[in-house]
Design a protein around this nucleic acid. Structure first.
Lengths: 150, 150
DNA sequence: ATTCTATTGTTGTACACCACAACAGTTATT
DNA sequence: AATAACTGTTGTGGTGTACAACAATAGAAT
């Protein structure tokens, strides 16, 4: 079989990917998410668990499936998530008043403090990333465009 | 234990997430990626395999690890990927000329045709998504901002 | 030359994530 | 009263991904 030279170029042509919005979106999101995951990890949770906290904090009394639907997850994924957050004393399951099948999810007092501290760190991170944009107006435009692509 | 009403609001408060660039980035990317995955699936490949094709097509003769580095993957992930693409007769491993450890990756003729057909479909999809933006200038600005966030 | 270190492809493993099916208990509908 | 629909839960399988280890090979050091 014919043997061939390999190329070890540090300057690789990404072809259509270079100017593809889908690829750029993915790259930016992965970069953003990597640091966010790290922050969450320092807090002892995962990004998914943090998103559950956000929903429960702003919408006390939600059902597990309601939270799952809000986040676009399967409700089966909620079990382990709520188990974990409950074992950390951050949220609690209370039996629903008029439906013995379901639980209502609530923040504990400690969970509230934990959440405020956590979301402060997350907001700080957001701010440092936003410094890469030129203006608040640009940021608003970015969010607007991203919403249109969702 | 006190029982409590559940809330089944369709109008859920996403709190800090609603105006968070990180969250919006994730949402847009996931939405974008879901359809992209579907297109790839129709072609019989995965998004990861498609990205390998893009790199190999534009950079013939690359080593497996070079492709892995370009894509930010571990080189161990490349084995199954190249196995699959080779079994589909899309690319081929040729023994490297001056290094008996490594292979040089090349597109087959059929792989070339397959890739052109595939990237056409992917580009079409990109175009339909870009229709949600107001202008080409807006698209350029979006890509520019996304690059800054990477 | 010989030894030591680095690299390549490869395999195995472990872990996170996610979708899906199934189930018992409960509620809603007919 | 019967049937369908929904809740939390468990299990399973697929997928992606990071990491360690290995033999073969290459490069560097002495």
């Amino acid at each position: 079989m014919a043997q061939t030279d390999t190329i070890n170029d540090t300057n690789i042509d990404f072809g259509m990917l270079a100017e593809s919005v889908g690829y750029r979106l993915r790259r930016a999101q992965m970069n953003f998410f990597a640091k966010f995951t790290e922050i969450c990890s320092d807090l002892g949770i995962s990004p998914g668990l943090f998103s559950v906290l956000v929903i429960v904090e702003k919408n006390p009394g939600l059902t597990q499936t309601a939270v799952a639907q809000a986040l676009g997850n399967d409700r089966s994924a909620m079990v382990a998530a709520v188990d974990k957050l409950e074992s950390m004393k951050l949220i609690e399951r209370r039996p629903a008043k008029n439906d013995r099948r379901s639980y209502a999810l609530f923040m504990t007092k400690y969970g509230q403090e934990f959440f405020e501290m956590s979301s402060r760190k997350v907001s700080d991170y957001e701010s440092t990333m936003m410094a890469r944009l030129h203006s608040d107006q640009e940021k608003d435009q970015l969010i607007d465009m991203l919403k249109r692509l969702s």
